[in-house]
């Protein structure tokens, strides 16, 4: 059972990021989420999502999904290694296993059902 992301359905509203962070912090914030709206390329209208799971980082780009195994690097001696993984110190997704009423919060709260549970 896994979280599936349809990046083209996503409307970049950040609901997932908010509720994931709530799940970890018990308040409204954006600090601790393991699912993050990638929105740093606003002028280019390029947005997607990053989801950190225990072993992998899922990069949901509009052009397709990329799954990267955490811990692997292409060239460890290279200073700026393009395959080094972001979000390493955030906790991996636990599918909100302690929240029986909702299941994964991001799935429950996505207003456009871009995030589903397989």
């Amino acid at each position: 059972m896994g979280i599936q992301i349809n990046a083209l359905k996503c409307n970049n509203c950040m609901a997932c990021e908010m509720v994931c962070s709530y799940h970890r912090d018990d308040g409204f914030a954006f600090l601790s989420a393991c699912i993050v709206s990638y929105r740093a390329k606003e002028k280019k209208d390029y947005f997607g999502m990053l989801l950190k799971e225990e072993d992998v980082l899922i990069v949901a780009r509009p052009e397709g999904i990329e799954i990267n195994k955490i811990g692997e690097e292409a060239d460890p001696d290279k200073e700026a290694d393009a395959s080094a993984k972001p979000m390493l110190l955030r906790e991996g997704c636990d599918r909100c296993e302690d929240m029986d009423d909702y299941g994964p919060m991001c799935v429950a709260f996505c207003p456009v059902d871009a995030i589903t549970l397989d």
Binding site: N11, C13, A15, K44, D45, R61, P62, E63, P111, V112
Partner: peptide, 30 residues
Amino acid sequence: IHRHSADFFTPYATNTALFIDEDPGLLEES
């Protein structure tokens, strides 16, 4: 029309991006 996007936590995408100097069908980062 390139894509539509929404304000924070808003279920309807009230914003539309128009690509005038790029292929609107482009999905990769321009």
